[in-house]
Nucleic acid binder design. Structure first.
Length: 431
RNA sequence: GUGAGAGUAGCUCAGUUGGAUAGAGCAUCGGAUUGUGGUUCCGAGGGUCGCGGGUUCGAAUCCCGUCUUUCACCCCA
């Protein structure tokens, strides 16, 4: 009976695993050099935890089950609720600001499509307990730090930055009533995907022509300062605060040297309601992929999970879209493989296999990645095997072993020399 | 959950109007090659044509169902 892999899942054969590890290791290194510490939680939690933030419709989009004690559980579709739970549990004991990262494996019961599977990995970084936009800037910097390291340039991607606070205050000043804000966010979030006319008509249906015109003008703003042409800020009001935050953030990003990656874009809304301040997404410049990552400030989340009102800001990046983009940009063409060896030991005759096994074990004991041929096939074939496994050196055990010697061959240059086995094993790197 | 396209060897694909034993390249394994790799040459293995049903003298080919997959919608934490 043939059993297929489950829809929307991936098998990681060694080749794919090597690539996956390369991505995950990059995330990890970028996190650590930016001062984040790793955490993780269980891969399933109480189903209720995911309903707190996102409501009941979320249940349709995750894998849930009952355990034998009739508890409603769910495989984690995101890790932020776990983070909130973990931080809340120890909030008083943790030094602030809390800078944590995680590389969770997540599952969502959605229909797979481009850049979106039912099981995936996501890089998460969060800074908790710091109100300053410096924290938002640091989250953005860490994100760019990674993307830049893997070879993406300002010609490939842009960090589009806006502010939920800005959007909310602008909409209120324009005259949108509070109860219409959330449905409006959903519509505004779709602006780039909809034809301009459809967007305009739908918007007019929701708020009327006059407001719609001003909202469209706001959404088209190229700079932070030009917003005041549409709505006026007054001293001390929320709009002034929001503008100041965005300007401060831009200033920090400039100090950090990544301005060329960043752009103000009031079209960035982010789907869910819990964002409270700066929000951002990274997009490919061509714009034919979904967002590479998204994040922002969510100052109420810990409180919503039964903790104190502690501010937080963070980012999440999935592996699927990232991999598609890197492949399109030719950044995965270089060899990413787990098949490498320091030494490949070649016995020429069957009776020399004993020596090959002993020598290989000796090299491994000294910490060198080494392998031997299982059978004493022709030298030519064994050298070919060594090449295929990307061996740096071959150690040939043949006739010269009668005099206690082996031949060490540099696979890159082809040069080789005969050396006493004892000397070689004593200090392999010398040869 | 809704809609559209696709499914032939491990991979990429060919297969005439429905016709006889379903092919190629790459990959794998073996040999040329009993002391010199990345090239080359020769050979082999590998298929329930996704699965089930129907039409037909005859189906990889046509029809229906189903599964998988791709893309879009919903949603996007």
């Amino acid at each position: 009976m043939k059993i297929l892999p489950v829809k929307g899942t991936r098998d990681f054969y060694p080749e794919e695993m090597a690539l996956h590890n390369w991505i995950v290791d990059g995330w990890k290194k970028a996190s650590i050099r930016n001062g984040f510490e790793e955490y993780d939680g269980p891969i399933f939690e109480y189903l209720q935890m995911y309903q707190v933030k996102s409501g009941d419709e979320i249940v349709e989009q995750l894998f849930s089950f009952k355990d034998r004690g009739e508890r409603d559980l769910a495989i984690r579709p995101e890790i932020t609720p776990t983070l909130a739970r973990m931080v809340n549990q120890k909030i008083n004991a943790l030094p602030k600001p809390i800078k944590w990262f995680s590389l969770p494996r997540l599952c969502r019961a959605e229909r797979p499509q481009k850049g979106r599977l039912r099981e995936f990995f996501q890089w998460n970084i969060d800074i908790i307990g710091e109100d300053s936009v410096l924290a938002d800037a640091e989250v953005i910097f860490t994100t760019v730090d990674y993307l830049r390291e893997v070879g993406l340039t300002p010609k490939d991607i842009k960090v589009k930055i806006s502010s939920r606070k800005l959007l909310a205050t602008v909409l209120k000043k324009i005259g949108v009533p509070d109860e219409k804000l959330n449905p409006l966010y959903t519509l505004l979030d779709k602006k780039v995907k909809l034809p301009a006319e459809v967007f305009s008509t739908t918007l007019t249906e929701q708020v009327g022509g006059e407001m719609a015109g001003r909202i469209i003008a706001f959404m088209g703003s190229q700079t932070i300062t030009s917003i005041e042409n549409i709505v006026k800020a007054e001293a001390g009001d929320q709009l002034e605060v929001a503008i100041k935050e965005l300007e401060d953030c831009a200033c920090r990003l400039n100090q950090m040297g990544i301005s060329d990656y960043c752009v103000f874009d009031p079209g960035i809304v982010r789907g869910l309601a819990y964002y409270t301040g700066i929000v951002f997404e990274v997009h490919d410049i061509q714009g034919d992929l979904r967002a590479i990552c998204g994040g922002g400030r969510y100052d109420n989340l810990l409180r919503d999970f039964g903790g104190p009102a502690v501010s937080a800001t963070g980012m999440g990046m999935g592996d699927c879209v990232l991999e598609i983009l890197l492949r399109e940009k030719g950044l995965l063409d270089k060899k990413i493989t787990s098949r490498t060896l320091d030494y490949y030991v070649v016995p020429i005759a069957g009776e020399l296999l004993d020596e090959a096994v002993k020598l290989t074990a000796g090299l491994r004991t000294k910490g060198f990645k080494s392998a031997f041929s299982y059978k004493a096939a022709g030298l030519s074939k064994q050298l070919k095997n060594a090449s295929e496994q990307n061996a740096k050196f071959c150690v040939i055990i043949g006739d010269e072993f009668k005099a206690g010697n082996v031949v060490v061959k540099d696979m890159a240059s082809g040069q080789q020399k005969t050396v006493p086995l004892e000397d070689f094993l004593g200090n392999p790197e010398k040869f």
